[in-house]
């Protein structure tokens, strides 16, 4: 590192540091601002008088006796029953992740260990489905689901999300299984295992890093989904993101907009935690397609 060719002249240092700091500000500030503001009342967060009020919160202080208030959260979680949406989201994400990974590991393993004929078609399908707006598929679901009377329920949505996510899951897991040497399961088969036993005894114990990375992306898909959940779930089964959108319709009245702000912040916090713990896996997952593809 003390290589003379790598010490940078001052102006370049200044420029790079400022680029990084500006970007850091652009990326982080909106969220920090909104989080801070979610503990204020509307009169402060959307202050007509002075934007600085959103930081100090004089109106909040006047109304609630302290510059911070949980009014928005109370309104959203209790009055508007956001907690139901949170529970629904939890159910949907947990099941989507578990089912996606179960199907995906089996299929991804088979793809990785078969000739490359199937793999090509899978790649093509994964590409096309990834490009296809989910809402186009949704317009195909609605009518049949109404007919079959399965519209509006959580299990339907879970299966749809699993299926939509499947090409991507298969692709990621298949690339991951390719990086596990074939020798491992072949050794197991020679040692006396069937293909399935080899998968269970030799592959499952070593596949967790790839499964966790893929699982993170399944989680994000299910957690963040708006299109499918907003169209396929009935009102009482709504998950968080469509619920936030539903709030917006009813926020014209004074004060209600803070419910939406509180709900948005509530939806962001789990992602903060997720990134905090799994930053490395997320980055490696994002770049996996680029490096291996």
């Amino acid at each position: 590192m003390s290589n003379p060719a790598e010490t940078k002249p001052l102006p370049i240092k200044v420029i790079t540091i400022s680029v990084v700091l500006i970007w850091l500000f652009l990326a982080a500030f909106p969220f920090l601002w909104t989080m801070w503001g979610s503990f204020k009342v509307e009169g402060d967060f959307f202050s007509r008088a002075n934007w600085f009020n959103a930081i100090t919160g004089p109106v909040t202080e006047r109304q609630h006796g302290s510059p911070f208030t949980l009014a928005g959260y109370e309104g959203a979680w209790i009055e508007q029953e956001f907690w139901k949406a949170v529970i629904n989201t939890a159910i949907v994400t947990v099941f989507v992740v578990i089912i996606s990974l179960t199907l995906g590991t089996l299929g991804g393993y088979a793809l990785a260990r078969s000739g490359f004929k199937y793999t090509f078609w899978l790649l093509m399908a994964a590409l096309v489905f990834r490009a296809m707006p989910h809402v186009t598929l949704v317009s195909g679901y609605l009518l049949p689901f109404f007919q079959l009377n399965i519209w509006g329920y959580l299990p339907t949505t879970i299966i749809v999300l699993v299926a939509i996510n499947q090409p991507f899951t298969l692709w990621m897991l298949h690339s991951f299984f390719l990086s596990i040497p074939k020798d491992l399961d072949e050794a197991a088969m020679v040692d006396g295992c069937t293909r399935f036993q080899a998968f269970r005894l030799a592959i499952i114990p070593v596949m967790w890093p790839g499964v966790i990375t893929t699982g993170l992306f399944s989680f994000l898909l299910a957690y963040n989904d708006f299109t499918v959940t907003s169209m396929l779930l009935s009102q009482e089964n709504q998950t968080m993101i469509p619920q936030i959108n539903a709030f917006l319709g009813s926020t014209q009245e004074e004060g209600k907009v803070m419910y939406a702000v509180a709900a948005v912040v509530s939806a962001i916090i789990p992602l903060f935690v997720l990134i905090l713990f799994f930053q490395r896996q997320i980055v490696s997952g994002l770049t996996a397609g680029a490096v291996k593809g």
Binding site: P181, D183, L184, A187, V190, D191, A202, V206
Partner: peptide
Amino acid sequence: ISMVFQSYGLYPN
């Protein structure tokens, strides 16, 4: 049969 692989194929766990 039994087989010795080039990269050994040992079970890492």
